[in-house]
Computed example of a mutant assay.
Amino acid sequence: MDKFADMTMFVSIVKHKGLAAAGRELGLSPATVTSRLKALEQRYGVKLLNRSTRHLSLTDSGALYYQSSLEIINNVNEAESLLQSGLNEVKGTLKIAAPSDIGRQAILPILTSFCQQYPNVIPHLYLNDTLTNITESGVDIVIRYGELADSSLISRRLASSQRVLCASPEYLRKHGIPTTPSELTDHHCLALFRSHEELTRWHFRQGDAHQSVAVQPRRFSDDGEVIRRWALDGYGIALKSLLDVQQDINSDKLQVVLSDYRVNFTASNSASSSDLNVVYVSRQYQPKRIRLFLDFLLSEFETPSW
């Protein structure tokens, strides 16, 4: 019984989203992969994968086994690297997913600085505004706005923030400044869509009062930086994280509207629902490069220079 080989096989199955593809990577026949996967599930008495002719997905037990296997494989690879080099060298891949806008403005320069200190670290930076499933994606670190739904993950706040409505001074001169949320229905709004969902219902709180407005956007994008660029170019009003647009506001390129209201994409009343967080699985068995980057990232956000 080679548990490490089983872990390697299972990680390959998840990575390639198929048993046949995993077999090709490992030099195993599809029948062998299927047989070993069945034996693995029988050994632990749990189902690890939901399988159909066209789709494969992790069960809760499978997600736990996958993440644990991935950590063990990474640690073994790092241990072998240290033994082979004879040095306590920081090297290997570092996979990070971040929202597009703050990713370019803040995470990219921080990652660049980190890799200058550790040139043998190979960064993978994924910039998108889709909520990344860290368990299934193989990403080491996810940076995201909002509260954490999965209690099995660790989340640490990088920066406090809030969401604001903003537009260029040119747009506001042409179309006027809204004074109530309901007036947004008469304005050109710029909307984000995420996971095929159009975020067109914006929520407003003022004290204990809550209301929502279904805006009629003139432009949509799944990229937060595109929304920001459209706002800067005078195409409408955007709902953005303050962290994304703070520099634009400071330089008078964008102007906040309806500042008396707390605005969000959801009806959440939590003060932390718009904060920027770093999310990861566990520090206990992380490769050194990941632990070092987390410490570096948290330190950089204490005294931001971007």
Rank of each mutant, 00 (worst) to 15 (best):
D2P: 05
K3Q: 06
F4P: 00
F10A: 04
I13H: 03
V14E: 03
K15P: 02
K15H: 14
K17C: 03
K17R: 11
G18I: 07
A20E: 09
A22F: 06
A22S: 04
L26Y: 09
G27Y: 06
A31R: 00
T32L: 01
S35T: 07
R36S: 02
R36T: 00
A39T: 00
A39M: 00
R43A: 05
Y44L: 00
V46Y: 02
V46Q: 09
V46D: 01
K47W: 01
L48C: 04
N50E: 10
L56S: 06
S57A: 12
Y65C: 03
I72S: 12
V76K: 10
N77W: 14
S81R: 14
S85G: 14
S85H: 09
L87N: 05
K91E: 11
G92R: 06
G92I: 08
T93W: 04
I102W: 01
G103N: 09
G103V: 11
L108D: 09
F114D: 07
Q116S: 12
Q117E: 14
N120Q: 13
L125S: 06
Y126S: 07
D129Y: 10
L131G: 00
V142F: 01
S152T: 09
L153Y: 02
S155I: 03
S155Y: 00
R156A: 04
L158Q: 05
A159K: 15
A159Y: 11
S160D: 08
C166E: 05
P169I: 02
Y171P: 12
L172V: 12
R173C: 11
H175A: 06
G176W: 14
G176N: 14
P178F: 08
P181N: 08
E183Q: 12
T185E: 06
H188M: 09
L190S: 06
L190C: 08
R194Y: 10
T200E: 07
T200Q: 09
W202M: 03
Q206W: 13
A214W: 13
A214V: 11
P217G: 04
S221F: 03
S221T: 15
E225G: 09
R229I: 13
W230C: 05
A231I: 08
D233N: 15
G236L: 03
L242Y: 15
L242Q: 15
I249K: 01
Y261A: 04
R262S: 14
A271G: 06
S274P: 01
V278G: 00
Y285N: 12
I290W: 01
R291I: 03
L294P: 03
D295V: 07
F296W: 15
S299M: 13
F301G: 10
P304T: 14
S305A: 13
